[in-house]
Simulated assay, not measured.
Amino acid sequence: MPIAKKKVTALVITYNEVGYIERCIESISFVDEIIVVDSYSTDGTYEYLLNHPKVKVIQHPFSNFTAQKSFALKQASNDWVLFLDADEVVSEKLKNEISLKVETENDIAAYWFYRDFMFQNERLGYSGWQTDKNYRLFRKSKAKFSDKKIVHETLVVEGKSGIFTERLTHYCYKNYEDYKGKMLSYGRLKAKEAFYREKKFNYFILLAKPTWKFFNHFFLRLGFLDGRKGFIISHLNALGVLEYCKELKRLEKKNELAYYLVMP
């Protein structure tokens, strides 16, 4: 009796991803199930997904990345899950490698993927991203998202991990305002995460952390070799850290005000 093919579910979370989600969905059409959890997009993303014959789309309110991805994971029908960002694309060679790994390597619970970062349609060679890797393919029964982080969520894996040779393509930079908005949003979410962990704001951190972020990405991680693109990425990453510091200060002030308001 022939052995049944192992099925794969692709998961994506979205919010206003027109111009990116189409390419992502096309690149994962080889999987057995595609589920997208949309947090009430207003740019046509939901309508595109609703009318796509291979996609099951569910709208769910967004509170943080970990909660949204954990919700999406529960919707998957298959044990093997390929979890992508809406601006990531799977190449033909990577498709073949995914199919081969799922069918032949039975002792692996999750796989790391390296990523090529794209500045619009040009690859970033440096700027801190050259060693970036994330879990993207894993067994649902062997992994879950840690509730200790609400942004840049962490996958907790029970079992052995493997790593792919081929890279994901990540279209991280659409334009200046889009990437700036993304970095500011990440900064605010990281501040909430830090606040819940009782980390404290101080002015030294406000001065030091953004400066270090820029210096690290542009000089130590060789962003200057990417030229103008490297400068923009390093600057906006530092801006995200600055927003983290400012938001942490705002949260502390808000908490202090609430405390004094309830004092007898």
Score class of each variant (00 low, 15 high):
V157P: 04
L248H: 03
F214C: 03
M1R: 01
D132I: 12
K148V: 02
D132T: 14
M118A: 00
K254T: 10
A86G: 14
E243D: 10
K56I: 05
F119I: 04
R139N: 06
E47H: 11
T45A: 08
V102W: 01
D226F: 00
S63N: 11
I21W: 05
E105A: 12
S77F: 00
Y46Q: 04
N96F: 02
L49R: 07
G19T: 06
T45V: 03
E153S: 14
Y111P: 07
L206N: 02
Y114Q: 12
L261R: 08
V151Y: 13
R167T: 13
K133E: 08
Y179M: 10
V156T: 09
K7Q: 11
S99C: 12
S141H: 04
K254I: 02
G181P: 06
L206E: 02
M1T: 08
N106H: 14
L206D: 05
H217D: 13
F113R: 00
N64F: 01
L155I: 13
D38V: 06
V157H: 06
A109C: 08
K6I: 08
R221I: 00
I25R: 04
L225V: 01
K148Y: 04
N134D: 13
V90S: 05
V241P: 07
T154C: 03
V262P: 00
G230Y: 09
K182F: 15
D132E: 10
D178F: 06
L82R: 02
K213I: 09
I108V: 15
E17C: 06
K160Y: 10
D226S: 06
Y173N: 04
L11M: 06
L137H: 05
I28W: 01
I34G: 08
L100W: 12
L242M: 12
K54I: 02
A4Q: 13
L137Y: 03
R115F: 12
T211Y: 15
L184V: 14
G162A: 06
V90I: 15
H60W: 11
T9A: 10
S29F: 03
V241C: 08
S161H: 02
L155W: 05
K200E: 13
K190A: 14
I233R: 05
W129C: 04
P61A: 08
S39K: 10
R123I: 15
R250F: 12
G128I: 07
Y20G: 10
E252I: 05
S77Q: 13
R221Y: 07
V31P: 05
K254L: 07
F164P: 09
Y46R: 03
V262H: 13
Q120H: 01
K56P: 00
N51T: 05
Q68C: 00
T45E: 04
L50K: 15
G162D: 11
A10L: 03
L248M: 12
T165Y: 14
F214R: 11
V90M: 08
I205V: 05
E22L: 03
L251V: 03
